[in-house]
């Protein structure tokens, strides 16, 4: 499956899950900031990606989970270098380069882009 085909299906998933228009979904679009996704939508997006691409997504495989509760990962509202390293290892589809410059936990959602979902799907399909 080409990157373009993956993008097309990811876009369909987001249009369906978030009730947005197709043209609102671009590679650099962020799920929360631009498309208004809330935490429960992440579960829905995961389910719909499974249906669209025919693979299973494990817990915490697509989006980070439990980071904010770990005092080693978050201190004073900022994600620690250890926390960032852990997320990079577990969630290689996200680009943390911009986030690292000002790693406030409240801003972590800025890495959840449409492009990152496409990268996630690409990796999953390549392992299948």
């Amino acid at each position: 499956m080409t990157r373009e085909e993956i993008f097309g299906k990811v876009r369909e998933v987001l249009v369906d899950a978030l009730g947005v228009d197709e043209d609102e979904v671009q590679p650099t679009t962020t799920l929360t900031g631009d498309l208004g996704a809330e935490s429960i939508d992440f579960l829905d997006i995961g389910f719909k990606l499974e249906q669209a691409f025919g693979f299973k997504i494990g817990q915490a495989e697509l989006f980070p989970q439990g980071v904010s509760q770990d005092p080693e990962y978050v201190k004073d509202g900022k994600v620690t270098p250890k926390g960032i390293a852990a997320m990079k290892e577990k969630l290689p589809h996200f680009d943390f380069s911009e986030f690292e410059k000002d790693p406030q936990l409240a801003k972590v959602a800025q890495v959840f882009t449409v492009d990152s979902l496409c990268r996630f799907v690409e990796r999953k399909l390549s392992k299948a």
Binding site: L43, G46, F47, E50, Q51, K56, Q59
Partner: peptide, 8 residues
Amino acid sequence: MTLFDAAG
């Protein structure tokens, strides 16, 4: 049911 897993 269309999907079922540990999360929902």
